[in-house]
Every structure is written in C-alpha cells, then in structure tokens.
Design a protein around this nucleic acid. Structure first.
Length: 895
RNA sequence: GCGCGGUUAGCUCAGUGGUAGAGCAUUACCUUGACACGGUAGGGGUCGGAGGUUCGAAACCUCCACCGCGCACCA
C-alpha cells in the first residue's frame, strides 16, 4: 500500500473482495459448527424482479446483522433465494409471447407455456441475485432456494395434503375477489380499497301486487339489475314492512316477459334504513353482502357476467357482450327510456381494486379452494407474550388485530405458473395426495396455489423440512427476519402460523416452533417528495447505477444513515454522495497514517500517552458502546451517525490534526507511540465499520497490515471474522490512564483552539498570516501540549507567560479552564471592532447569567431539585461569571 | 368509523424532565505537507396550537389542527 490513490476508487476494490469472500467460502454456514447460531432467511425477491431501493434497504440491514454476528463469533446462515411470483411472472411471459410470436398462452397450451416460463426464469432469474452480490450481501449462495425447486414444491404439496387431511383445506363455491384482467381469484389481502368517483342512481320499481305503489332503489351498479333476484327492506322499517312477501317488477332486461322479472320483496336486518332509500336491490351473484342475504333467503343466483368482466346473455341483449363499465352506461340509458330513472347524483365510494392489475375486482361466485388458518392461537400468543419481538413493537397490535379478524384464505389461483393443486377428480370422486392416483380417468385440478401459500413455508422448507436436518437443528428458529410492514399479513403472519403448524411436531423437539425470534420492520422507501417509489412514476433510482457511480459501500452508508427506526425513508441521492464522501474520508485518514511510515505498531506505552491520545481512546470507547447498543436495538441510523461523528468530527477533525505536532517534530518515541494509538484506533474503527462498509474496510484492513498479526480465522484472512471491538474494562482504563482529567485537558485545549481561531476571525485577520499568541495557563502545561496548540492555532509561536503578566492595553483575549489566550496585536487591529466583539460577548454572557440566576433564585428550585442538577447549575453560573469578569477586564483594558 | 405514525433550522431528521443538535443547503474565508468527495468560522429554530402536571416541558397528560398509513365499510 505504498502508492495509495488520492481518492478512494470503489470499482477496483469491490468485485475483487466479493470474489475473494466467495472463493474462501466465507459466507458458507456450517451446521456442525460449535459456535452459537445466527440465522436469517431472506425475504425472497421475485425471480423476475430487479433490484430497487427497497431491496437495498432491506438487504443492507440483513447484511449488517449477518456480518456483525460473524464478528461476534456466531455461526451465521443467511439463506437466500427467490420466489416464483405467480401472476407477475406469468404476465411477463405472456407479454413476451405476444410480442415475439404474436401468440396467446392458450394457442401454445399449458405444457408449452410452462416451458417458456422456465426458460424465462433461466434467463432472467439470476439478475436480482447478481445485483444482491453487487451490494455486498453475504448470503450462503450454496443454499440458494427457489419456491419452484422440486424439493420445495414437494413441501408445498405435502403441506396441502396434510391440511386437507386435517380438514382445514376445503373446496367450495363462494364469493371471491375476481380479477377480470388476470382472470383469477385473489385473496382478500390482494384487494386494495380505493375511493372512486361515480354516480348514485335512484330508480323506481313497481310493486306487482299494488300497481300504484312504486319503490325507489339506490344503486351504484345499475348494470347488475338483470342479476337481481330480490329487493330487501328492513323488517323494522315502517315504510316498507307491509310489502314484505310481495313482489316487484325488475326493469331489466327489458325484453324479458313480465312474469320472469317478478322478484320478491324480502325483509333482512342487513338493510340500513338510513342509507339511500332504505330499499336494497339484492344481486347474490355479484356482491358479497347480497350473496349472504341470498343464502339466508334461498334466493336464486343469476350470474350475468363472463370471467373477463363482460356481460353475458343473461344480462339481456342490450348489455350482453359489453364490458361492465360500458354496460353501466347502457343500463342507465335503458332505465331512462323506461322512465323509471328518478335521480342520478355524483357519488364517491370505495371500490376494491386488484393490487396487481390495478382494475376494480369483481365479486364473483366460483369454485375455489380455501384454508382455515391453522395454529392461530399460538401465533397470536408468541407475539402477545413477547417471545417473538417486533421492532418497532407497534406492529404487534396490527398483527394481533388481523389475526383476530381473519377469514378463510382463498388459496387457489386460475393460473398456469405455480404449484398445481394435488387433487384429482374422477366423476364424483376426489383424491388428494402427493402422487397421482392409480387407475384410469383421473384429471388433476387445473388450478395452482397462491404464491404466498408456498412462501409461508420459507423458514423451514428452505432448510430441508420435512426431515429434521442438521440445518434445521442448528438454525431453526431463525434469529431475525427483516421485511417491510406491507407484507405483515401476506407473509409474516402466515409464516408464523406455518411455523407452529409444521415445526411443532414432536420429532423436531423444539421448545418453541416459531420461525423467528425477532422481526424488524423497515420503513418504506420514498422519493424526496415523499412519494412511493414506483415504475410508473419513474422516481426509483437504479441501485446499480448508484453503485457504479458512488460504490456499494456509499449506497449502503447513505441508505442506512437516512433510515430511522420504523419510519419511512425519504431517499435522496445526496445521501449516497455523503456515503461516498465518507468512504473517501476513511480512505484518506488511512492514507495519512501510511504516509507517516513505519510498520503497524501494536504496543501502546501508557506513560507516553498525551491528553489527545487518551481523549481519542475514550471517544473510541464511547463509539464502541454506542454502536454496539444501537445495533442490538436495531437502530441502524443511530449507529451510523455515532460512527460518523466519532470518525469525522472527533478522530479526523481533532485527533489527526493534533497528531501532526509530534509527527512534524523530532521525538521518535512519541511518534512511535502515536502510531500505535492510531493503529489501535483505526483497527477498531475498521471493524466497527465493517458491517456497514464491507468492501472498503476489507481493502484497508489488508492494506494497513492489520490482518498480518492475527490468526486466520480471527481477522488474518478477512476482517469478516475479526472480533467485534470491545469497550475498555476498568483495568484497561487504569493501565492507560484514561481518566476524567486527561479527557478534560484535551477537551479544554480544543475549546481554547476554537476561541483562538474565533479571535482571528472576529478581528478579520488574514487567515494565511502566522500569528504570535500569548498563553497564560491556569495550571501547568506540558511542552507537547503547547506544540499541539501552536499547530491547531496555525500560530507562528505560542508564548507562555506567568500568572502576573499583564497585556498591553487593548490586547484581544479569550479564556477557558485551560488558561487565557492573547493576540498581542496592539496597533494592528481595529480597536472599534474588538470593542464591538467584546460588547456582544458580554451581552450574551449576561443573558445566560440571568437565565441561570432566575432558576437558582426560585426557592422551590433549590429545595426540590436533585443535588447533582443543583451543582450543575451553580457551576454553570460560576463559569459564566468568570467569563464575564474576563470580558469586562478586556473591555476596561481597551479604555 | 376504529387504530397507528408524524408535526423541532430552508430541506431530511436526532433528541423520552435540567444550557435546542446533526447532515445537507446557505454565507465568508482558505487550494496549508490525508482528504476541495476537503478545512476554518458564521447565520438560521418562541420545538404545529391550546390547556394541564412540574421548581423546571421539545419531551409527560388532555383536547384540537394538519399530513401520512393501515383496517373496516351502506347498497
């Protein structure tokens, strides 16, 4: 490391070390290890996905946790993989097929289509994995899993069969959320309610038995009138109760004979007579609530729509074939023609949208598979009782609320890409099993399972379940899960249930079958205007571009620094720039050390330590404590900020600058000791930074020679396995003399430097001019301390004078605990400016004195306040008063 | 409707009872022998509002306002 570039160049460093780590097997987890286990399973990204900022946030955190655990001496398994993303992947392949061959999947058939999907997966599936590698993720790639792997698929089928046999999975004709674009059922969680502007239509219908009586019905969906099989009123509603049992004439379809359009008036408590007109049209085939009313009253179910959202012939010839929204307009026209439209007024209501396709879902009656959620009670209990911890813990309430109100999960999807339901039919026979039944005439259910029905098994299906493998024994339950709160229901809650249901069996001999001990919920990454990152907005930067531009470490650092615990992250490229600047600072600080020459110094001689040395060792000690604490509480931003402050504002700004005094001097022993301190500090610093900045720290670790003295498995081979820094214990502090006194001397020295620089600035002196300062120390001061002062003040000289020395009239000065500093510039400066400066200073001091005096003057204050606080205030008052005396003296001296 | 966050410097955010902080941006100056991806010094805040508790509140309590999110949902 003789010829170090002036600026850090990440591009030449990152790939080199990533290859090194992989070749050395540094990420590989050994289940036979005697070390305590630490494990994380990655939230599997979509196999066809691309890395976005959310992944960066999420995976950087997992990497930090993993790397920290390795340095803590744990056996680490970070298990990576991808999921097959049923709908998303199928849609992508369909699009490609359309574009390249102008064909639909139906034209090539299921089998051929699946071949295309696999080919697509082979081609694109590694993209996101390689992107994670670029980011520095230390996953055990030898264990990479995919939810469509044969072994994994086997787990999914097995789970289905078991739950079926337990009676928890059943098939039924139910109202489901139907996506007319994807043409599949969706679970409740995949439906997003959105306010929509539309109209509330009021139309009137004639009571068949009382031709003079008309009822007015309010609806937002007139196109569903042909599917109405009753109108309902509240039996307690005096306006209508007497009509129950009679019939109305449904206005649509127009062509239908009157007798076929007679539908009953029924009484149902569901009807709110405050709302609308108090008369509800009941469309059991197209509304969930109406379906339930229909069940209660044995109403006919008339499905008037096709799966793709167009109307069928039952809707009548004027609507048939039209899209549901066109049909609405036409239905309105028909009602107007009939003269039954009473009113249409603008109306906003909430409509369920398919999260994936972003179109309104259609409640639709169809044959689907459902799961009664298993192991709900233990899943609730483990979080409620705090055995599994959520960070931040407010998510526990959200989790509990959801689990308390869940409905059965619709797990079948009308897709081709996914795990096929292991059920076969022959006439009225149904067979559920891992293998196809023997005999002729069986056909397998054509549906596949919801992707989440496979990913809920992720924590154990990736580790060899259903066998009780070495990996499961060692690494299950996992230590941490890192994910976004947006999938708390989709994934987290379901994984917990699956854990209890399938890992709770006696053969696994687990005291608690929960899949993880901690769940850390990240924030959601937004742009700097607070908008969610999205492809359509184009506001999501490509992390790979950022890595190419600034380096992976910079991206990690910037992201972590701006990611407060449990809050959304407003991402700004400036943060990455800051990360790059920081890496450069770290680089150059090490470069400075190298330029001082010499081998790595390992022995610090306590009697040669200056106040600066002791001060920086204490600051390092503090930083180690803060960073360690922050990491155990998942406060990543706090950890980064503590490191930033320590390294930049303490080590570089003060210690490195102060160290230049001995380095430019002649005392070889002092220099060597200084190098030893620097090497100690840097070696600790690099280790503290390693989880955040894996690449640059590894480069510097070797470049600085810190690896040389260490055993291979403790930092000799890689910083990854170097031990995490420990704070000093009492004996060490005593040995190095790290006490309050040394700390205060250095702090006062730096404060005095600030005061001196301030004098120079206030007096508008040429910054380039070397000045002579005079110092009247309050106590004794070593020569080395004076040298540091001289250097930091950029002074020509610092002359020491005795206590009885008095300055010439008008000499600017400043003082603190260390002593009084003068700038003997009589005649050179503008006395008016100095006087103004001092007057301003005096006013500020007086204001502070008034504030403290007022507090102390309050009799209650002295009585009630703790002694420590009282002393603090008294001391503060004394300090300000001393300063006031000094300023007044200076002013007086000015004449 | 229920629940959860948030409101502190121009911006993004720390700060859970005792002298209001950081980074960015900004102003002035500096290319000095680690670093201009840098250094030095500065300006900038009645901590959303109103009450209350307290010797003392940015912090604790109550109410309100506004912003964001989740759940539920009446046709």
């Amino acid at each position: 490391m003789n010829e170090i570039p002036k600026a850090y160049e990440p591009q030449s460093v990152e790939d080199k070390w990533y290859d090194f780590w992989q070749k050395q097997g540094c990420f590989t987890a050994d289940p036979k290890s005697a070390k305590p286990a630490f494990s994380i399973v990655i939230p599997p990204p979509n196999v066809t996905g691309m890395l976005h900022m959310g992944h960066v946030l999420n995976n950087t955190i997992q990497d930090i946790l993993s790397r920290k655990a390795r340095m803590d001496g744990k056996e680490v398994l970070w298990l990576p993989g991808t999921d097959h993303a049923g709908i998303a992947t199928q849609v992508q392949v369909e699009k490609a097929l359309k574009k390249e061959e102008r064909k639909t999947k139906y034209e090539i058939g299921r089998e051929e289509f699946l071949k295309r999907v696999w080919a697509w997966k082979e081609k694109h599936g590694n993209i996101i994995i390689n992107q994670l590698k670029k980011l520095g993720c230390s996953c055990d790639w030898s264990r990479e899993r995919f939810t469509m792997d044969p072994e994994y698929s086997r787990c999914v089928q097995k789970v289905f069969v078991e739950l079926y046999k337990k009676g928890l999975i059943y098939r039924g004709k139910r109202m489901v959320n139907w996506c007319p674009v994807s043409q599949t059922a969706l679970s409740d969680e995949e439906v997003e309610m959105k306010p929509q502007k539309g109209f509330m239509y009021h139309f009137k219908v004639q009571v068949a038995e009382e031709p003079d009586t008309w009822l007015t019905i309010a609806t937002t969906r007139p196109e569903t009138i042909p599917g109405d099989t009753a109108v309902a009123v509240n039996p307690k509603d005096p306006r209508y109760a007497h009509l129950i049992g009679k019939h109305i004439v449904r206005p649509l379809p127009i062509q239908l004979p009157r007798e076929q359009k007679l539908i009953p008036i029924i009484g149902d408590e569901h009807v709110d007579f405050e709302f609308g007109t108090g008369v509800l049209k009941v469309t059991p085939a197209h509304d969930k609530a109406d379906f339930e009313i229909g069940q209660r009253h044995n109403l006919a179910i008339v499905d008037i729509m096709n799966p793709n959202g167009t109307m069928n012939e039952l809707a009548g010839e004027s609507l048939a074939g039209l899209d549901r929204f066109e049909a609405r307009d036409v239905a309105v026209e028909r009602l107007k023609e009939l003269g039954v439209m009473v009113e249409e007024k603008p109306y906003e209501n909430n409509v369920g949208f398919s999260q994936r396709a972003d179109v309104p879902i259609e409640p639709r009656l169809s044959e689907q598979w459902f799961l009664k959620y298993p192991s709900v009670e233990p899943s609730k209990a483990c979080v409620a009782e705090g055995r599994m911890k959520f960070h931040p813990d407010r998510w526990a309430k959200v989790y509990d609320h959801w689990l308390t109100n869940i409905q059965d999960w619709c797990i079948s999807r009308q897709l081709w890409w996914g795990h096929r339901i292991p059920v076969w039919y022959r006439n009225s026979e149904v067979y559920c099993g891992l293998e196809a039944p023997t005999g002729e005439g069986w056909t397998q259910d054509s549906d596949v399972l919801d992707t989440w029905f496979s990913s809920w098994l992720w924590p154990f299906a990736t580790m060899g379940w259903p066998e009780n493998t070495e990996t499961l024994k060692k690494f299950y339950p996992t230590t941490d899960l890192v994910t976004g709160p947006d999938i708390i229901f989709f994934w987290v809650a379901r994984m917990i249930m699956a854990g209890y249901e399938f890992m709770g069996e006696p053969k696994f001999a687990l005291p608690d079958a929960m899949p993880f001990q901690n769940v850390y919920f990240t924030g959601i990454i937004r742009d700097k205007q607070g908008r969610k990152m999205s492809k359509t907005l184009g506001n999501s930067p490509d992390p790979l571009v950022l890595i190419a531009q600034y380096g992976a470490d910079a991206l990690r650092f910037g992201t972590m620094r701006s990611a407060p615990l449990g809050q959304d992250v407003l991402f700004d490229e400036k943060d990455v720039e800051l990360g790059r600047n920081f890496c450069n600072k770290l680089w150059n600080a090490c470069r400075f050390r190298q330029m001082q020459g010499g081998e790595t110094e390992t022995e610090i001689k306590p009697d040669l330590l200056t106040s600066d040395d002791k001060w920086i060792l204490l600051r390092l000690d503090q930083a180690i404590r803060e960073v360690s604490d922050a990491l155990t509480t998942y406060n990543f931003a706090t950890a980064v900020q503590a490191l930033y402050r320590f390294f930049w504002s303490e080590y570089c700004d003060w210690y490195v600058e102060a160290s230049k005094a001995p380095f430019f001097g002649t005392d070889a022993a002092l220099k060597a000791n200084k190098l030893a301190v620097i090497d100690f500090v840097l070696s600790n610093t690099l280790r503290l930074f390693h989880p955040f900045l894996p690449f640059i720290t590894e480069e510097l670790w070797h470049g600085m020679g810190f690896s040389k003295e260490l055993p291979g498995n403790q930092g000799g081979q890689t910083i990854m396995f170097a031990s995490w820094p420990k704070p000093f214990n009492t004996e060490e502090k005593e040995y190095f003399g790290l006490d309050d006194v040394a700390d205060k001397v250095a702090a006062a020295k730096y404060e005095l430097v600030g005061l001196g620089r301030n004098l120079r600035r206030e007096l508008k002196l040429d910054p380039a001019k070397k000045l002579n300062f005079i110092l009247k120390p309050a106590g004794t001061l070593a020569a080395s301390e004076i040298e540091v002062l001289k250097l930091l003040l950029n002074a020509e000289s610092v002359e020491i004078v005795a206590m009885d020395w008095t300055p010439d009239k008008g000499t600017p000065s400043a003082s603190n605990a260390l002593g009084e500093i003068f700038l003997p510039l009589a005649g050179l400066i503008d006395l008016g400016a100095e006087k103004a400066r001092l007057t301003k200073e005096q006013e500020k001091i007086q204001a502070e004195i008034v504030k403290v005096e007022q507090k102390l003057a309050n009799p209650n204050f002295a009585q009630k306040v703790p002694a420590k606080v009282l002393d603090e205030h008294k001391q503060r008052l004394a300090d300000w008063q001393a300063k006031l005396v000094q300023v007044k003296a200076s002013l007086k001296a000015m004449g």
